[in-house]
Computed example of a mutant assay.
Amino acid sequence: MTKPIVRAVDLRQQVYENLRGRITSGEFDENTRFYERTFADELGVSRTPVREALAMLEQDGLLSQAARGYRLPRMSRQQVIDVTEIRLLLEPHAIGSMVRQTKPAKRAKIAALIRKEVEASRDSDAYIAAHGRMREVILSEVENRSLVDAIQQYEDSIHFVRISTLGRPAWRRMSADGMLDLADALEAGDDQRAAELQLTLLTKARDSFLEFSETDA
């Protein structure tokens, strides 16, 4: 009798998902260096799947090569300005359309989730990961998936901006207050107000990063 083939565990994918989740949640600070040996020892795997996972993360824009190993990417002030310009064109429209197309009960559920996430994390670095989860929930309800794909092209590339700004208490509070206002607009079905709030949030995030980059220059 022929035995069924057992698919081998894809260690590369597991390492990739482990590191990707930790990077996007803000676990690593901006000066972290990513070495094959370090994570092979930590995760209990050989260096090969770690090497392949790090290369995948670089391809995604989550890491960039350094003199030795990898590091979190740096975005220039102009890159942040350019990417924000694109996001300002896409995201307010996406959120406004989501409000118009989503049923009241679903909007209320999303609003309640946003409030819960904000209240649980606004006073700590846990807000960085919570912010990502809130965005995912909102974008998941946008019917135009091509529009969402266009927005998400820049999602990973701006994680350094998110970590830099939301890791600072004053900027985190500003974002949290904005998300609570957005929750109110979603629940009320006010698509114009929701779009305006998203535009404001993106503009403040850009300006906060530019202020951060001047401070650290």
Rank of each mutant, 00 (worst) to 15 (best):
137 V>T: 02
59 Q>S: 12
135 R>A: 12
61 G>H: 01
70 Y>G: 02
63 L>P: 03
133 R>I: 02
95 I>E: 04
103 K>V: 15
53 A>I: 07
54 L>Y: 07
124 S>V: 01
137 V>K: 01
148 V>G: 08
99 V>Q: 11
140 S>F: 06
138 I>Y: 06
151 I>E: 08
120 A>C: 04
112 A>G: 05
137 V>P: 10
51 R>F: 10
73 P>A: 02
36 E>D: 09
152 Q>F: 03
99 V>A: 13
50 V>D: 06
153 Q>D: 13
38 T>G: 04
67 A>T: 06
71 R>Y: 11
130 A>W: 07
95 I>H: 03
92 P>V: 10
110 I>L: 09
49 P>A: 02
119 E>Q: 15
129 A>W: 05
123 D>Q: 13
128 I>N: 04
56 M>H: 07
72 L>T: 08
112 A>M: 01
133 R>T: 03
40 A>Y: 01
142 V>M: 02
56 M>N: 03
127 Y>S: 07
65 Q>T: 04
67 A>K: 00
71 R>F: 08
73 P>I: 11
154 Y>G: 15
82 D>V: 10
93 H>W: 07
133 R>Q: 12
48 T>W: 01
125 D>H: 14
86 I>M: 14
114 I>K: 02
103 K>Y: 14
145 R>H: 14
42 E>L: 01
41 D>F: 07
37 R>F: 00
65 Q>I: 04
148 V>L: 02
132 G>H: 04
153 Q>E: 13
153 Q>W: 09
118 V>T: 05
74 R>P: 08
114 I>T: 05
44 G>M: 13
54 L>A: 06
122 R>S: 13
143 E>T: 15
88 L>T: 05
134 M>F: 00
148 V>M: 00
139 L>N: 10
52 E>K: 06
66 A>D: 03
137 V>N: 06
48 T>K: 14
91 E>A: 02
79 Q>H: 06
111 A>E: 00
36 E>H: 07
123 D>T: 07
107 R>N: 09
96 G>I: 01
151 I>C: 11
37 R>C: 06
136 E>A: 13
63 L>V: 07
73 P>D: 08
52 E>D: 11
38 T>H: 12
118 V>N: 02
93 H>L: 14
59 Q>E: 15
90 L>F: 09
146 S>N: 15
92 P>G: 01
103 K>I: 14
125 D>R: 14
125 D>Y: 05
121 S>L: 01
56 M>F: 00
40 A>E: 04
136 E>G: 15
118 V>R: 01
117 E>M: 00
59 Q>T: 08
96 G>Y: 00
107 R>Y: 09
53 A>V: 02
128 I>H: 12
112 A>P: 04
112 A>F: 03
139 L>R: 00
74 R>D: 13
112 A>D: 06
45 V>Q: 00
69 G>D: 07
104 P>C: 00
138 I>V: 03
82 D>C: 09
39 F>M: 12
98 M>H: 09
136 E>S: 15
